[in-house]
């Protein structure tokens, strides 16, 4: 393949493009964080932040997601070194950990709803469900992406294209962990402390 756009150039452009997409995503989360912070006390007689959060639960989620971020990073690292099988195992671990994280979040949401604290209860809960839920939605997209990537890796021989696809996924997954640090801190820890 002697494309005028060389493979490295393509990798460069795609990485920067995807990076900029992540920047736009940061601004989406910025808007949601701003909304949450403005509405956090607007409980309208419903439960307040300290009533519904558990720091232990949030820490468990944090550790799981952080670990998945680590396995994902190492997976990408190994693929760059040509170790496809090991890389796939670690990516699988990432998927399992991510799914566990998501399951915990679904559990948390369903518990809240079953207690009658839905997103219709108050502006505060609307903001909470939307902010945390948007992160969860990103995690779900990431999981689907990782699974298609696994299928692709299983079927195809290793090449620069595969490394590029893996690198983009790793960027996305690390990015989600960084967003989570702030959800952990601003929503959960500060909520418990308030």
């Amino acid at each position: 393949m002697s494309h005028s756009v060389t493979e490295t150039e393509k990798l460069d452009n795609t990485t920067l493009g995807f990076w900029l997409y992540l920047m736009t995503d940061i601004m989406i989360f910025a808007s949601l964080f701003a909304t949450y912070l403005v509405l956090v006390n607007a409980t309208a007689g419903g439960p307040s932040a300290s009533d519904i959060y558990s720091a232990d639960f949030a820490l468990l989620q944090t550790v799981i997601l952080l670990t998945s971020s680590f396995t994902c990073g190492v997976s990408a690292l190994l693929l760059r070194r040509g170790k496809k099988t090991a890389s796939m195992w670690l990516l699988l671990a990432t998927v399992v950990l991510g799914a566990a994280f998501l399951a915990l979040e679904v559990f948390e949401f369903s518990t809240l709803v079953s207690e009658g604290h839905t997103w219709q209860t108050s502006a505060f809960l609307s903001a909470f469900f939307t902010l945390v839920g948007t992160h969860g939605l990103h995690i779900s997209v990431g999981l689907i992406w990782a699974i298609t990537l696994l299928v692709y890796m299983y079927r195809t021989r290793i090449g620069s294209d595969m490394v590029r696809k893996m690198m983009l996924f790793a960027l996305f997954w690390h990015f989600l962990d960084i967003i989570w640090i702030f959800i952990f801190t601003i929503v959960y820890l500060m909520g418990v402390a308030s």
């Binding site: 720091a55 949030a58 820490l59 944090t62 952080l66 670990t67 971020s69 952990f184 820890l189």
Partner: peptide
């Protein structure tokens, strides 16, 4: 990884 873990637990 370990530094991040320590920072999370410290905050907790």
């Amino acid at each position: 990884f370990i530094t991040a873990l320590v920072l999370s637990v410290a905050a907790y």
